[in-house]
Design a binder for these strands. Structure first.
Lengths: 109, 109
DNA sequence: CCTTTAATTAAGGCTTTACTTAAATAAGAG
DNA sequence: CTCTTATTTAAGTAAAGCCTTAATTAAAGG
């Protein structure tokens, strides 16, 4: 049900990851500006943005010839929630481990 | 320095993602059991686990012929921290947006 | 020892991904 | 209209990813 692997796939490319970070830090930006600093062609930039859009990580709207991209919180929220849930799991594991260690300690008293 | 794209890449495959979830839910498991239910060969399982290990998401230890895998919290913690930081960014964006909307509302009073 | 069990490494094939250049679309400027 | 600006779509290529079978490593059991 959760399309998390697709979200992770979109974020697994360094260029796309940097684009997302840039959008987080600077807010809405046109495709052109999002391509700055990467030394790849404009079509490559457009294709990367297409992947992010497909994964539900960004919104797009038109302003004249520009296409303005912005973060779509839902996608990142899904990541945050999953990672948080994961943390609860391993904290539970640590608790179980502590209990075991506690018993071991008692044994050695 | 954050190798987050590599972490995301490791989690972008449905098989590996499921393996991580299984390790979270059940704790340490041998390679053989982690391959159950996927209809892929043992080498494929081993290669997936190699990717997870390379990305710092799992630990491995030996017990007889078995190789026992378990979650390495640091990797997932990095994801959780990043997603959390990201949330703060877009919440800040929303605050900015609300301020603008507030001004608009006053205009229309 | 020899066999079984568990997993890995090696080698090769097929598919997907990330890039390129060229062509197309679309809006504003002259 | 025509030209420029911004971006996308199309088509092709090289690299990376995931899988397979075969061979290898390593420990345990008879």
């Amino acid at each position: 049900m959760t399309a998390l692997p697709q979200t992770f796939s979109a974020l697994s490319d360094p260029v796309r990851f940097a684009m997302v970070e840039r959008l987080l830090a600077e807010g809405e930006l046109p495709a052109g500006r999002l391509g700055e600093g990467f030394d790849i062609s404009a079509p490559a930039v457009s294709q990367h943005l297409g992947v992010l859009r497909e994964a539900g990580l960004v919104n797009r709207r038109a302003r004249a010839q520009q296409r303005l991209y912005s973060i779509r919180p839902e996608g990142l929220l899904a990541v945050a929630n999953w990672a948080d849930e994961a943390r609860r799991f391993w904290e539970a594991s640590l608790d179980r481990l502590e209990k075991v260690l506690g018993k071991e300690a008692k044994k050695n008293e």
